[in-house]
Each structure stands twice: as structure tokens, then as C-alpha cells.
């Protein structure tokens, strides 16, 4: 596979068009009364059996190329623990950044916050490795297809954009969940 083909694998080109989770613009805005820092939105939506749900939203911009993403993520109670219940985003950017957001959106629902964090950490390490690190395919699943990006330092930011947004949104979602629990 040529360098270019390993960067733009079929899976990546497909995801860049499917854009799973890229429907944030069609959803109602998160409820007002947000807590936390600017850009974060806290809701106590999805009441019912699931227990308290926290939502966070993060906007990330890559000033070099103008890639942009707004990502919203919710955390709720699942079984004995916590899990990501929903993830939606809206963005504009290159095939790498759009595919990366799409893949993440298919992976994240059902993951515990701890395991999403572990996955993000590994993905970041992989991206920064300049191609020296092997992808943990079990952990990264489809996102392992983005491993080729690591050899193109100028594109790492594109691949990371949605993941950085998810990390930020997750932190806020948990904080907001704490708030609604305390109420």
C-alpha cells in the first residue's frame, strides 16, 4: 500500500462520507441553565430508569486549516456503572477529521467514561508517535485504521480534533452529572 493509500484507507474514505453522529445541527439545542465553563452545556435530561444523565459540549477549532467541530456527549447510569449514552457532532473539515469523528461516534456509545478516556489516551499517543507505536486494535477497533496519520505530523491535529472535543465534553458531562445528582 502506498503512503497515500495507507493514509486514506477505504474505511476512512467511507466514514468521511457517512459521518456517523454528524447530526448535531438537526437536534434541538441542549437545555438552558447550563453549568460549568463557557461552551459547556449541562442538562438533566433523559430522566427515568437510567438515573441521572450529564451532558457536555465542546467546540474545537484547528486554526491552521479551519477544521471545526462541535461535539455533544452524554453520560448516564448503565447497569452497575456509568456509560456514554449519546454522542453527536457537527463539523466541517478534511476527510481525516470527518472520518475520525464518525469512527469515534460509532465506538463511544456504551463505553464507560474510564474506558473512553483510556482509548483517547492511547489514540493520542499513537498519533504523536510518528509511526513508531503499534495500534492496540482491540482498544481502538475501527480507529486503528487512522494509524497511518501518525506518519504525517501535519495531519495529526485533524485526526485528534473530535477526540479532543470528546475528552472535553466527557469531563463536562461528568461534572454536570455530579451537579444534577446533588440536586
Amino acid at each position: 500500500m502506498s503512503g497515500l493509500d495507507s493514509l486514506y484507507q477505504q474505511l476512512i474514505l467511507e466514514h468521511s462520507k457517512i459521518r456517523s453522529g454528524g447530526d448535531l445541527a438537526e437536534l434541538p439545542a441542549a437545555a438552558a441553565g447550563s453549568v460549568g465553563t463557557a461552551g459547556s452545556v449541562g442538562t438533566a435530561g433523559s430522566v427515568g430508569t437510567a438515573g441521572s444523565v450529564g451532558t457536555g459540549q465542546s467546540h474545537q477549532l484547528n486554526p491552521i486549516c479551519g477544521d471545526e467541530i462541535t461535539l455533544r456527549l452524554s453520560v448516564g447510569t448503565a447497569g452497575d456503572g456509568q456509560a456514554v449514552t449519546e454522542i453527536h457532532w457537527n463539523g466541517d473539515g478534511c476527510a481525516i477529521s470527518m472520518a475520525s469523528a464518525s469512527i469515534l461516534s460509532e465506538m463511544a456509545p456504551g463505553m464507560s467514561p474510564a474506558s473512553l478516556r483510556r482509548t483517547i489516551d492511547h489514540f493520542r499517543e499513537l498519533m504523536r508517535s510518528r509511526g513508531k507505536l503499534e495500534a492496540d486494535e482491540e482498544l481502538l477497533q475501527d480507529a486503528a485504521a487512522l494509524a497511518g496519520v501518525a506518519k504525517y505530523p501535519a495531519r495529526v491535529k485533524c485526526a485528534m480534533l473530535a477526540w479532543v472535543a470528546a475528552e472535553d465534553a466527557l469531563r463536562q458531562a461528568e461534572a454536570n452529572q455530579g451537579v444534577s445528582e446533588a440536586l
Binding site: L4, C65, G93, C94, A95, Y152
Partner: peptide, 13 residues
């Protein structure tokens, strides 16, 4: 249908 960054990457190759 193709972002400028991807155009540039293709050409760089």
C-alpha cells in the same frame, strides 16, 4: 467534495 487539505496531501504524495 474534497477538502483542500486532502487535495494538498494527494499532491504532496
Amino acid at each position: 467534495g474534497v477538502h483542500a487539505h486532502d487535495v494538498g496531501q494527494y499532491l504532496d504524495d
